[in-house]
Simulated scan of single mutants.
Amino acid sequence: MFDDVIQEDVLLEMKYVYDYVKIETAFPKYATKKALQKYSSPTLLFAAENDVFFPSKLIVPRSEQIFSNLTKTVILQNSSHMQNNANINKILTEIEYFFSN
């Protein structure tokens, strides 16, 4: 899940989540184009290349099929499910740019 050195506070947070939070074990059901037909807001997609749960090679094509308003897709290269500081900064920059334009 991690592609960088795991910081102690993040590791502790993950421990608390797994120790004290009842985690849903089933993945969310797939959205359909029909279910999203009334959704018209511009959409920004982030996908991690090596995400063990949601790999970009599956997420991007599926998103292109169901979102008619997919404005921008950012694939985080060499990245896993949990983001490192460099990717967090990239994500924040992309979000800021997306909402300012």
Score class of each variant (00 low, 15 high):
L58C: 06
K34C: 00
K15S: 03
V10L: 13
D3F: 08
D19F: 08
I66N: 04
Y30W: 10
K34M: 01
L12G: 07
S41L: 10
F99R: 06
F2C: 11
V21K: 00
P61D: 00
L44K: 02
K33R: 01
P28G: 09
Y97L: 14
Q83D: 12
P28Q: 05
V5R: 12
P55K: 10
Y97T: 14
Y39E: 05
S40A: 03
A26T: 12
Q77Y: 14
F53T: 09
F98I: 07
S68P: 06
I23L: 05
I6C: 07
P55C: 06
A47H: 05
Y18N: 02
K15H: 03
T25H: 07
V60T: 02
F27V: 13
F2P: 03
F98W: 06
Q65C: 11
V60G: 02
A26Q: 11
M1Q: 06
F53M: 10
M14W: 03
T25K: 11
L76V: 13
D9G: 04
T25M: 09
M14I: 12
A47F: 03
Y18P: 01
T93M: 11
V74I: 15
F54G: 04
I6L: 13
Q83F: 15
K29C: 09
K90H: 07
D9T: 12
F98V: 05
S40K: 12
N69K: 12
I91F: 10
K22H: 06
S63V: 02
L58Q: 01
F99T: 11
E94R: 13
Q7R: 10
Q77A: 15
I75L: 09
I59R: 03
I66T: 05
I66K: 07
N78S: 11
H81T: 08
N84S: 15
P28M: 07
K57F: 15
K22M: 05
L12M: 04
P28A: 08
S68V: 10
N87Q: 14
L70P: 12
I91D: 09
A26R: 11
N69V: 11
T43V: 06
H81D: 11
Q65E: 14
A47K: 04
I6E: 09
Q83K: 14
L44H: 01
F67Y: 13
V5S: 12
E96V: 07
K15M: 01
D51F: 07
E8C: 05
A35H: 02
I91S: 08
T43S: 04
I75P: 04
Y18D: 02
H81Y: 13
M14S: 05
V60P: 09
K38R: 09
Q65F: 13
Y39C: 10
P42I: 06
S63G: 01
Y20E: 04
L70E: 13
S41H: 06
L36R: 00
N85K: 15
I91G: 10
L12H: 06
S79I: 13
